[in-house]
Design a protein around this nucleic acid. Structure first.
Lengths: 191, 191, 191, 191
DNA sequence: GATGAATGAGCGTTCATTCAT
DNA sequence: CATGAATGAACGCTCATTCAT
């Protein structure tokens, strides 16, 4: 039997509870319980709940970004690259609904806002593919000439919303619908 | 001058506090304080905090929908109607950031999910304009033939995201940018 | 029956528990229990435990100082005034052993040190009798010419220690012993 | 160089932390850390925290008493012997402020009270010099005829208080002030 | 009706102690 | 022997809700 790393058990439990019930629907004691550890044990791995929440998010990003970029190549045409990333993202969310729900909870909270502000101001973005793609697309006049932030909204806004609807059961996406949704997103950003 | 209804004072106070600090940054006592009423008084007008939150949302919708539909006419072409609604919505959010923030808090919480589920399943939607517009647009083959839920995502996803960025200060929208953003949304949904 | 003020009940309970068991032998829940109130009620009267502790001390001083100065007159000779104050102080401690024990706990803790530092630096001493007496005694050359702080130690050090021994049962003071002890203190400070 | 005994490292670390931060500012884990040992290791040398605290105090006494009695001789006159002991004690406290602060923490706590009660009742005092000196002084009518406990208070009360003020920075003692302070103590106890 | 003092369950967090390695 | 990860009871504190006035 593989040793189930305790930090990982805690992370998994916290991710699941927070994804399903939100931050204040996931008391530390409940997380500990679900992880099968004592309440105090969490604090050996995470300084406090805030840190747990933030690190969980960073772990999530580190899992997600490589997955999305698999097979991605800057040699391909702009449109194709856009479709690749968009599709990969939407698929990731559908395949890992807990990750998606957690991500949503995080973004829609002071944590996420602060985090994003730091990122934008601090220019410490780890995942440059999106930014690079859009900048190139705009420069080559294949995408609309709008501020990056708006372009991101046009591209990712629908993806997030559609993923949400899928996960909540308001729609049932198949391969075709995924493709057509992402192509629609392309229509929104293309020139 | 009309006596400022106590219920309204409570609503205003609650909306503001929740919009700015989230649900758990707005204790009932603080709401009461800000509303200038006793803590117990809130419970004369709202059964409990959950009810307060939900009714606040319904009030908000009732304020917002008429505002958005002002000057709207089903006689005009599909595209023009879409631009009208989209622009009005985005403008509303920018003009009433507290409403927007509250709406976001609500949607991104168990309240919002449950509420939306009830709405979709129960078919008790109050605001048919959007649905009507999209159904007509699809029927006339001016819009993409995708499930309504996805069409809504394509149209409103970016609007919400862009409004959020504006309110958080990540972008500064002027009249031109608003128009171009909504036109881009149209590109996403149009055939 | 007189309405037993809740704040007072809490004060009494806290004073007693802290006097007997020290600060960490007096959890808020235990204080609440002993005061016959709910745990949360304490926080209506005292912002937090630190504030409770500090205000308790200030209340104590306000009770004690007038009591000690009763019948005190600056017209009398230095020695007589010293004996008056010393005796009154020792008697007060013996009569109100809880006050004494609390005062000791307070002084021997970061609270007391900070409080005293503020007092000395800020010159906001409420009880000037002691200082006045000693300054006059030194000026008139009836007391030793030593720094005030040391003079206080010579005078009050023994009083505190002796009160402590009495309260812990290591000695049993009667009227005569009290007088002779205070006279001994005078011998320590007199020229 | 002798291998620095682990027990000693633990003692040193505990003494320093407790002296500076009090008993509850010195968690076992922090002591272990500072001592450079594992948390569990402490329990090989001390049954539990209470025992650690008490044994630390006994160690301190064993260090302090010989130091104070250096050069002390029962052949000298009572007054000279008193001055010797008093001065040595005050100097010790000033030279080893950590020892003094620890001693204070200990005395002003249930530990100290219990310990002292045991000592007085059990008559197991290790350091007889003080008692001997005072008994002789009283017998020879060079000291006041008061209960021993009170005499101790008159003599040591001021010394402790003055040491405290020095260590907390409320006064700055030089050789002259030390001598004059102790002489004042003598005035308090002498006939 | 309106109040706000009172409540107590529940939260995040700490820390003395244990025990498998 | 020594370790330090794990524990869980206990802490200070918050806040939705109630109810006597």
């Amino acid at each position: 039997m593989t040793k189930p790393d305790k930090r990982e058990e805690i992370s998994r439990a916290a991710l699941e509870l927070i994804a399903e019930n939100g931050f204040h629907g996931a008391p530390m004691a409940m997380i500990a319980d679900k992880a099968g550890v004592g309440a105090g044990t969490i604090y050996r791995y995470f300084e406090n709940k805030d840190v747990l929440i933030t690190e969980l998010y960073q772990d999530l990003e580190e899992r997600m970004y490589p997955c999305i970029q698999e097979g991605y190549s800057t040699d391909k045409p702009i449109r194709e690259r856009f479709i690749h990333l968009g599709t990969a993202l939407l698929r990731y969310f559908i395949e890992y609904p807990l990750d998606f729900r957690y991500l949503e909870q995080f973004h829609n909270s002071p944590y996420g806002t602060d985090y994003r502000r730091d990122k934008i101001l601090g220019d410490k973005e780890e995942c440059h593919v999106f930014r690079d793609l859009f900048e190139e697309g705009i420069a080559r006049q294949e995408m609309k000439n709008l501020p990056l932030v708006i372009m991101f909204s046009l591209a990712f806004g629908p993806i997030l919303t559609v993923a949400r609807d899928q996960i909540l059961g308001f729609v049932s996406l198949d391969q075709v619908l995924i493709t057509r949704s992402i192509e629609a997103c392309w229509d929104g950003v293309k020139r």
